[in-house]
Each structure stands twice: as C-alpha cells, then as structure tokens.
C-alpha cells in the first residue's frame, strides 16, 4: 500500500510532465498538421537554458531563487526556440506537411549534435535547493518534494491553457483552426499568426517539461538527447488522447504515466521484463487504436 502511494505520486508527476510535452505537440498537430519531431529538442533546450541560468547567475542569489529563475529561463528558452523554428523553417513550407515533418527531424538531429559538441555528451548537473531533494511525510510514506513541483506545474499550466483557449480571441482562433483551418482563413483571419503562437506556447511548455523532468527524474542531470527519449512517450500520449485535444492529452498523460510506473514496479522486477513499463504504453496505444481509432477524446471527423 505504501509503495502504491509512492508510485502514484511519481506517476502523477510523470503524467504532469507528459502532459506539458504532449499538449503542445497535440495543438501543433491539430492546428497545422505538423508532426513536430523537434519537440523533444525544445525540451532539451529548455533544460539547457535552465542549466545556463542556474550556473551563470551568481550563487549569492541563493538556490531557491536560482531554481525559480532556471525554470522561467527554461520556459522562455523553449518558447523562443520554437518561435524561431516556426518562423524560419516551418513557415516557408506551408502546404507541404511531409517537408515540415522532415525539417523538424533534420533540425532535431543538427541541434542535438551541436549540443553534444558544445556541452559534451556527458550529463551536466543543475544545482537545486535542498528542499527539492528532501521528502515530505504523507500517509506513512515519504514523497520527494520534486514530485509536488511537477504536479503543481502541470496543474497550473492545464488551468492556464484552458482559460486561454476558452476566453481569449486567439484561444478561440486556435480551437476553431484545429477544427477547420480553411474556414478560419475564410473569415479573414491570418492563421499564420496563430501558427507561430501555438509553436511558442508548445515550445514553452516543452521547455518547462524539460527542466521539470530533469529536476524530478534524472537527478538534476541534463544531457543532449534526454528530450528525444521523452518524445516517444509524448507521441503515444497525443495519439491516445486524440490529436488536437487538450483534455485528451491531460487524461492520457496520467493514464500512460501511471500505467508505466505500476507495471514497471510490479512486473518489471522479474527477469526479462525490465522494459515492461515502456512496453505497456505501446500496448495501451494499440488497444486504444483498435477500439477508438481517433483516441480517447478525438472528435469523430
């Protein structure tokens, strides 16, 4: 029972990170038909931006301030990288979805290569305040505080995103565009701006996901291809949740992460089953596709 609670907390924390990564992917795909292979890169860049902020600013600021600034830096870094990507690489290829996918693959390859050259392929450590490493005593078990940071971050972003999408004009444009991009244009709206915006928002969330993942799951270590290994799970979450659906991403992220945590602990201990946690997510995907090809929350076209 105690272990179950620990697994649940870390599953929800992982789910929060999957949600941050997947919701942006899902919006980008829903609005623009771009399967963004550079999304993992945005996560990685966020983590590196956080590392730079945390290590370059004077340590006299204190570890708590530094980590807050690093998280902000990661979010801005991810958003900035994504915005530039959209304007420079995606925009010239409008109407060529395959080329857009290909260019994100090339970009990911190139920049990850650059990171390996620049920072070395060994992992770098982000300094974090002691509080994040310490656990909190809940219901008879100790839960690492970092879990709460991820869960809180995910919840705040979910609420903010829901507000933005339902209350603001650009939010409405994005929702409408996911449904029928052409008709939005035919109302005289420049969808291109919404494209850039969605990339920036998606990239910012990815950057946040990148640094939170570092803090919660990698022991504060940053490495060049960490985002790419998360990306595959983000894809799985997006497809299970239904392309273009934020709520779908949120639910699917939790389901996938919890499944992964439970199976890898309860089954993965047996020899030959070490990867069952990861494998189970793909099996879940296959089942969902078989029963509901459009995903849990995907609209019937």
């Amino acid at each position: 029972m105690n272990i179950f609670l620990v697994l649940t907390f870390s599953g929800v924390a992982l789910g929060a990170i999957y949600f941050l990564a997947a919701s942006g992917l899902s919006l980008i795909y829903g609005l623009m038909d771009v399967l963004n292979f550079a999304h993992g890169l945005f996560m990685t860049l966020g983590a590196y931006a956080g590392y730079e902020v945390a290590t370059r600013l004077p340590s006299s600021l204190g570890a708590p301030t530094l980590i807050v600034l690093a998280i902000i830096g990661a979010t801005l870094g991810g958003g900035l990288a994504a915005g530039i990507t959209e304007l420079v690489l995606i925009r010239p290829l409008y109407g060529k979805p395959i080329s857009q996918i290909l260019i994100t693959i090339g970009l990911d390859l190139a920049v990850v290569g650059l990171l390996m050259g620049g920072f070395g392929s060994t992992a770098l450590q982000i300094p974090v305040p002691l509080w994040l490493i310490e656990p909190t005593h809940i219901g008879g078990v100790f839960i690492p505080n970092a879990n709460f940071l991820a869960i809180g971050g995910g919840a705040v972003v979910l609420l903010g995103l829901e507000w933005f999408l339902s209350r603001t004009r650009y939010g409405i444009i994005i929702r409408a565009g996911v449904e029928n991009r052409e008709m939005v244009r035919a109302l005289g709206i420049d969808v291109g701006r919404a494209f850039t915006l969605v990339f920036v928002i998606g990239g910012a969330m990815a950057g946040l996901a990148g640094i939170l993942y570092t803090i919660v799951f990698t022991g504060d270590l940053v490495s060049p291809s960490q985002g790419d290994s998360l990306l595959i799970f983000a894809f799985i979450v997006v497809v299970i949740g239904g392309l273009g659906s934020i709520r779908g991403s949120a639910v699917a992220a939790l389901v996938v992460a919890l499944l992964q945590e439970y199976t890898s602990f309860y089954i993965g201990g047996h020899s030959g089953w070490a990867q069952i946690g990861d494998l189970s997510t793909v099996l879940l995907l296959a089942v969902v596709l078989e029963l509901r090809p459009r995903g849990l929350f995907g609209r019937v076209a």
Partner: peptide, 22 residues
C-alpha cells in the same frame, strides 16, 4: 565544435536540402 560533429553537419545539410532542393 560544429564541424567536428557529424550529426550536426548531416542534420544541417538535410535541413538545407528540404528547404532548397526538396
């Protein structure tokens, strides 16, 4: 740094091809 990373060079070459010589 960039020139000694094959992955960077290949990725960059590929990006240029997709953009300018699809």
């Amino acid at each position: 740094v960039p020139l000694s990373e094959p992955q960077f060079l290949l990725g960059a070459i590929f990006v240029l091809f997709v953009l300018f010589a699809p």
